[in-house]
Design a binder for these strands. Structure first.
Length: 447
RNA sequence: UCCUCGGUAGCUCAAUGGCAGAGCGGGCGGCUGUUAACCGCUAGGUUGUAAGUUCGAAUCUUACCCGAGGAGCCA
């Protein structure tokens, strides 16, 4: 019985007869010699058939294979530097083949470049391409590294509701759906408020699930449905949560570098940039960041960039500001102490400086920008009530949230990390849409 | 919602007022080391839609539809 292997482990099977099951990704026919590039879901490997080595009918069957045909191949593994693939460096000399299906010859995905629209319209097939395969394998590792670190550091996974009664943060647009006799329910855009309840039972918690934002954002950094992990920690102030974040993010990067080296290589990701991601991360205040942006703006001669970088204290940073700022650093950088007026109602004011709050964003380097938003939450009941009134939020809807401050209130902090933005940065790619299997954007819900 | 760019063969694109083309992909043939192989032959078109200008429109004008990038907002 020949050993069924995964292509990712092929180096452990050098000079053995093995079996793989997969699909023909590409083929090159050279008369008496045929090269098949076969993928099995775990990797890509070149398989070679030579007419003289095989029975006539087997060779003819190989010649007739179309792209994406499903096959079971038996053969001899041998090291060969010429062999393409992921991981590559090994090929299989075919001794036998079982064709499961000869794929229709009108497979629409070319091995050459595609426009974004065509690629997204064919996302169900695009997933098979090496670039998309590599990105989504990295995504999976990011997700498990997230859970691994939190689970190993005393965090309890508490999944928060996706159907929620009202806006948690008030400002952004929500997706609504009819909900029996209760009127409209809204798809969650954060689990944070629920997690603030959960910490009083479990001390350190996280929720991890899809998040929905009906914003009309048409940029390469936005999806209407994306995944966010939100840790929340009791007895933790702003400095404490920054320490958590840098340990957490560094672990994710480390795990990806260890487990997904072939995928990073196939994406031509410069891993030296990722290797620098170790604690501590630089911390700069919003005030300082404003100064730095003004300085960068001063130094640029490009009138377009000068206009984009125009800024006044009190505003929130836009993408151009974040990009310019993060290019000054090799590691992710914390920006803390944003103006209270641009942040959510629940953020703890800075002592003796109420115009700023104890908020902190983590901006990924190389121009990628915000991947985490977090803060210390208001723990004082009077202060919270005052803020809810200032923001003209319905007090009745926040009754339970305010009760949390009546019974054993403690300083606590938390943050939300956007999975797709993190994966975009890890992979060094341009579009967030490639980092989720089936992206949902403002004008796409197919496939 | 606003700004910019785009829509021509299955895909990626060329043709800037005068015969609608190339490469890839498909089909047929050739080749024992290909790396997005290569070589020869071949099929493949309502140029996003509608109207207009013109002897003549893929090309110019207007409206609309669709998409992309960016702004705002955010992870």
């Amino acid at each position: 019985m020949t050993n069924l292997i995964r292509i990712e482990n092929i180096s452990a099977h050098a000079d053995q007869e093995v079996k793989i099951r997969g699909w023909v990704y590409n083929r090159t026919r050279k008369g008496k010699l045929v090269f098949l590039l076969v993928r099995d879901g775990y990797g890509f490997v070149q398989c070679v058939a030579f007419k003289g080595d095989l029975p006539e009918e087997i060779f003819e069957e190989i010649v007739r294979l179309t792209q994406e045909s499903s096959v079971e191949i038996k053969g001899q593994v041998r090291a060969d530097d010429r062999a393409p693939g992921i991981p590559g460096g090994f090929e299989i000399g075919i001794t036998d083949i079982k064709v499961i299906q000869v794929a229709d010859d009108e497979y629409p995905m070319s091995l050459k470049e595609h426009g974004t629209d065509f690629a997204l319209e064919n996302r169900h097939l695009w997933l098979r391409m090496p670039s998309q395969w590599a990105i989504l394998r990295i995504r999976s590792t990011v997700v498990s590294a997230i859970r691994e670190w939190l689970d190993d550091n005393g965090y309890i996974n508490m999944d928060t509701p996706i159907l929620t009664p009202a806006a948690a943060e008030g400002t952004t647009t929500l997706f609504g759906t009819p909900y029996f006799d209760e009127g409209t329910a809204y798809l969650a855009q954060t689990g944070q408020l629920y997690n603030e309840a959960n910490i009083y039972a479990f001390q350190k918690v996280y929720c991890f699930g899809p998040t929905f934002r009906a914003e009309k954002s048409k940029t390469r950094r936005h999806l209407t449905e994306f995944w966010m992990v939100e840790p929340e920690v009791a007895f933790c102030d702003l400095d404490g949560i920054m320490e958590v974040e840098e340990q957490f993010v560094s672990h994710i990067v480390k795990r990806v570098l260890e487990d997904r080296a072939p995928e990073l290589a196939s994406l031509e990701r410069d891993t030296t940039a990722l290797e620098k991601v170790t604690p501590p991360f630089p911390r700069i205040s919003y005030d300082k960041a404003v100064e730095m942006i003004a300085e960068i703006r001063e130094q640029t001669d490009d009138p377009e960039e000068k206009a984009l970088l125009a800024f006044e204290w009190g505003e929130d940073f836009g993408a151009p500001h974040e990009t310019a700022l993060t290019k000054q650093f090799e590691k992710p950088v914390f920006v803390y102490g944003y103006p209270t007026q641009v942040k959510a109602f629940y953020m703890e004011p800075w002592p003796d400086r109420p115009e700023v709050c104890k908020s902190v964003d983590l901006l990924a380097p190389e121009g990628y920008g915000e991947i985490i938003g977090g803060s210390e939450r208001i723990s004082d009941p009077e202060m919270l009530l005052q803020r809810i009134r200032e923001h003209e939020l319905p007090e009745e809807a926040y009754k339970w949230y305010m009760e949390l401050r009546q019974f054993g209130s403690v300083p606590h902090s938390g943050f939300g990390l956007g999975v797709e933005r993190t994966v975009t940065w890890m992979c060094g790619i341009h579009h967030i849409r490639e980092t989720i299997p089936f992206p949902r954007t403002i004008n796409r819900v197919y496939p």
